[in-house]
């Protein structure tokens, strides 16, 4: 009996604290994404216009995030029925956005980020592991334009398509 109460307590803890933490994390992500609205990151492999480049260097950002106890339990149930497992899609979404933001933090003074790539790896030791965590690395090439050309050329992408 005590074991059932213990498991229920863990589930409740995961549900309450986990969703609070997730909401706070999403709020932080959105705030930082707004701050980076004018710094485009793109998966194009070449620089999209005729800017002359003074410097280019690879940068990366990474994060390891795990799901809470309740979501892991819910995902286990959902596996019986199939369909989208929302608890894991929000985990990966958070991890990717956080990794991209850290990458941008690492090259704040650059003018453009090209050839953005994501690499994901799971840290759990197989299916029966009780740890559901994922690592995401975002990496890309940061590009600095030559100073004398920054002003007189149009922005690399039209403002409407920036994020």
């Amino acid at each position: 009996m005590i074991q059932i109460y213990f498991a229920l307590a863990l589930l409740a803890l995961g549900l309450i604290v986990g969703s609070l933490l997730e909401r706070a994390h999403y709020a932080r992500i959105k705030k930082r994404e707004r701050a980076f609205r004018d710094f485009p990151a793109m998966s194009l492999r070449q620089i999209p216009n005729a800017h002359e480049v003074s410097r280019a260097s690879m940068r990366m950002g990474s994060v390891v995030i795990s799901v809470d106890y309740f979501k892991r339990f819910a995902a286990g149930l959902k596996k019986l029925f199939g369909g989208e497992i929302h608890s894991y899609s929000s985990l990966l979404d958070r991890a990717r956005r956080e990794a991209l933001l850290r990458l941008k933090d690492n090259c704040k003074d650059a003018d453009l980020l090209v050839n953005l790539r994501f690499e994901t790896c799971t840290l759990s030791n197989g299916a029966n592991s009780n740890i559901g965590s994922v690592e995401v690395v975002a990496y890309g090439t940061a590009v600095w334009y030559r100073n004398d050309q920054r002003e007189d050329l149009p922005p690399p992408v039209p403002t409407a398509t920036r994020f």
Binding site: G14, G18, S66, L91, N130
Partner: peptide, 11 residues
Amino acid sequence: NLVGGELKGYT
């Protein structure tokens, strides 16, 4: 892992 979130040590 109980409450989820970033695992800074592993990062």
